[in-house]
Simulated scan of single mutants.
Amino acid sequence: MGEDDISRELREELKKTLKKFEDYDLKLKTKEELINNLTISLNLKDDQIKTMIDSMNLKEQQIDTLSKSLEIKNQKIKALETSFGLKEEELKDLSSSTVKKSLLEEKDEEIEDCQKKLTILTGELEKADEDLEALEAENEKLRSNLASESDVKIIDSTFREIPKSDILKKIREILGSAVHNVTISVLDINDLQDLHLYEVRSSVNMKIMCKIDPSLEEDAELLEELESLDNITIRLYEDRDRFLIDRDGEELLFSIVGEEENNNLVLYTKDVKHQRLLRSLVMEGWLRARKLD
């Protein structure tokens, strides 16, 4: 056997040996990882056991607390049972007493009286239920009528009643929003007292037309007060046919007085085109109104 053959064999043996060592090293590492995993698992188990022990201790404390609470409740129950026994004896004693018998009879009479009142109230309640059903029927009828009327859209104002007080209230509401200019018309100068003109901003110019009788002391005094305000111009309008307010060119209320009292046709709008046409009637009235001497 030559030297080359010996060297080759030795190298192969060395490789085999090295391979064995590598296998041993790999197995060793695997076992170490296994030991580490087992150690971690044991630590987790220890933590779980500790948690379970703590939980058991807490439960034992809760059980102890509940046991004490139950014992206290049992003592209270016994005390109540004793108290009930004493009360029963007292009731027996009271029932044998003549005074208490009369008191019981009095209570029975009160109970009977209450029962009579209850019977009366029950009857009133039944009557109220009947009235309520009748009212609901009337409301349903009114709703039906309203629904049928709403289909028409055009309102017949021939006999429609809108009282003067409601119109003046709306004018006062609109007047509260005035910023620059307003034109107002009412039937009589005394109607202006309901508009609270003194509360209007002093920067608002107010043109007012209404019926005024200077020969009447009340009219004369009110006219003098109004003319003392720099932002009010007032004219005499004798026709007594309209209520109106035109505010800042933004909203306009125009009411035409009907033949019957409170039969007022009221138009209220913020629409520009509506206002444009109605404003011609506003100006017509203002031009017809006479300046005061």
Rank of each mutant, 00 (worst) to 15 (best):
E13Q: 08
E124L: 02
F243C: 01
N37R: 15
C210V: 05
N139W: 01
E124G: 00
D113P: 05
V182G: 05
M56S: 12
D156R: 02
L58A: 12
I167A: 01
F254G: 00
K29Y: 12
S69T: 13
F21D: 04
K59C: 09
T17A: 02
N205A: 12
E13W: 04
L135M: 15
S67C: 13
D271I: 07
R240L: 12
Q61P: 10
L244K: 06
K207R: 14
I234Q: 03
D166T: 07
I35D: 06
N205R: 15
P214K: 02
S102H: 11
A220L: 13
E259Y: 12
S102D: 15
S55A: 09
S41D: 07
D293S: 14
D156E: 03
E261L: 08
V152R: 04
N263A: 11
N36F: 09
E218C: 06
K101I: 13
L142R: 11
L38T: 07
L42W: 03
E225S: 15
E9Y: 08
R242V: 09
L222T: 08
G176W: 05
E227S: 15
K20R: 09
E218H: 13
L229A: 10
S97N: 15
D131Q: 00
D4V: 09
D64H: 14
M206L: 00
I154A: 10
L175W: 00
Q48Y: 12
K76Q: 10
K78W: 02
E224C: 07
E227L: 14
N74T: 10
I77D: 02
C210L: 08
P214W: 02
S41E: 12
L195R: 00
K170W: 11
H180W: 12
T119I: 08
D93N: 13
K127A: 14
V179T: 05
E126Y: 00
I120Y: 12
D5K: 02
E284Y: 05
N43E: 11
V282H: 01
D4E: 13
E133M: 00
L58K: 10
N43Q: 07
V257C: 02
I111R: 13
K59A: 05
D213F: 01
L226R: 13
K16H: 04
A147Y: 04
Q193F: 08
E250F: 09
L223D: 04
I256H: 00
E12A: 10
A137Q: 11
E32Y: 14
K78D: 07
D4L: 15
E140G: 15
E81G: 05
T183N: 06
N231T: 02
S83H: 14
H196K: 06
C114Y: 14
E284Q: 08
